[in-house]
Computed example of a mutant assay.
Amino acid sequence: MAGFHEVRFPLRLALGASGGPVRRTDIVNLSNGREQRNQRWRDSRRSYDAGSGIRSTTDLYEVLEFFEARAGQLYGFRFRDPLDWKSCAPGGVVSAMDQILGAGDGATAAFELLKTYADFAGSWARRISKPVAGSVLVAVAGASKPAGSFAVDAVTGVLTFASGHVPPAGAVITAGFEFDVPVRFDIDRIDVSLAHFEAGRIPTIPLTEILP
Results as ranks from 00 to 15, higher is better:
residue 3 G to S: 13
residue 5 H to E: 14
residue 6 E to Q: 10
residue 8 R to L: 13
residue 9 F to K: 04
residue 9 F to C: 07
residue 10 P to L: 07
residue 14 A to I: 09
residue 17 A to S: 15
residue 21 P to R: 08
residue 22 V to E: 13
residue 22 V to W: 04
residue 25 T to D: 15
residue 26 D to Y: 10
residue 28 V to M: 12
residue 28 V to R: 10
residue 31 S to H: 08
residue 33 G to S: 06
residue 35 E to I: 09
residue 37 R to G: 04
residue 40 R to A: 10
residue 42 R to S: 15
residue 44 S to Y: 08
residue 45 R to K: 12
residue 47 S to G: 08
residue 47 S to Y: 06
residue 50 A to N: 04
residue 51 G to F: 00
residue 52 S to C: 07
residue 52 S to W: 10
residue 53 G to V: 07
residue 53 G to Y: 03
residue 54 I to V: 15
residue 55 R to F: 08
residue 57 T to C: 05
residue 57 T to M: 09
residue 57 T to Y: 08
residue 65 E to M: 10
residue 66 F to S: 06
residue 69 A to W: 09
residue 74 L to G: 11
residue 79 F to W: 03
residue 79 F to R: 01
residue 82 P to C: 05
residue 83 L to T: 11
residue 84 D to Y: 05
residue 84 D to W: 06
residue 85 W to F: 14
residue 86 K to D: 05
residue 86 K to W: 07
residue 86 K to M: 15
residue 89 A to M: 14
residue 89 A to Y: 14
residue 90 P to S: 09
residue 90 P to W: 04
residue 91 G to A: 11
residue 92 G to V: 12
residue 93 V to C: 07
residue 94 V to M: 07
residue 97 M to L: 15
residue 99 Q to M: 14
residue 100 I to R: 14
residue 100 I to E: 11
residue 100 I to C: 06
residue 101 L to C: 06
residue 101 L to T: 01
residue 101 L to F: 05
residue 102 G to V: 02
residue 103 A to Y: 12
residue 103 A to L: 13
residue 104 G to W: 00
residue 104 G to N: 03
residue 107 A to I: 14
residue 109 A to M: 07
residue 110 A to G: 02
residue 112 E to K: 00
residue 114 L to Q: 03
residue 114 L to W: 01
residue 115 K to S: 07
residue 115 K to A: 11
residue 116 T to D: 04
residue 117 Y to H: 12
residue 118 A to H: 11
residue 118 A to P: 02
residue 120 F to M: 11
residue 121 A to N: 12
residue 124 W to C: 06
residue 124 W to F: 12
residue 127 R to W: 02
residue 127 R to S: 08
residue 132 V to Y: 00
residue 135 S to Q: 04
residue 138 V to M: 00
residue 139 A to Q: 02
residue 139 A to T: 01
residue 143 A to L: 08
residue 144 S to D: 08
residue 146 P to Q: 05
residue 146 P to L: 04
residue 148 G to N: 02
residue 148 G to C: 01
residue 150 F to N: 00
residue 151 A to E: 06
residue 151 A to L: 08
residue 151 A to Y: 00
residue 155 V to C: 00
residue 157 G to E: 00
residue 163 S to M: 08
residue 165 H to K: 03
residue 166 V to D: 00
residue 167 P to V: 04
residue 168 P to W: 05
residue 169 A to S: 15
residue 169 A to N: 14
residue 173 I to T: 01
residue 176 G to R: 01
residue 177 F to M: 03
residue 178 E to A: 07
residue 179 F to M: 05
residue 180 D to L: 10
residue 182 P to Y: 09
residue 185 F to V: 11
residue 185 F to Q: 11
residue 185 F to K: 10
residue 189 R to I: 13
residue 189 R to C: 10
residue 190 I to M: 12
residue 193 S to F: 13
residue 196 H to R: 11
residue 197 F to L: 14
residue 199 A to T: 12
residue 200 G to I: 12
residue 202 I to H: 06
residue 203 P to N: 03
residue 204 T to L: 03
residue 204 T to Q: 09
residue 205 I to T: 07
residue 207 L to Y: 02
residue 208 T to R: 13
residue 209 E to K: 03
residue 210 I to L: 13
residue 212 P to M: 02
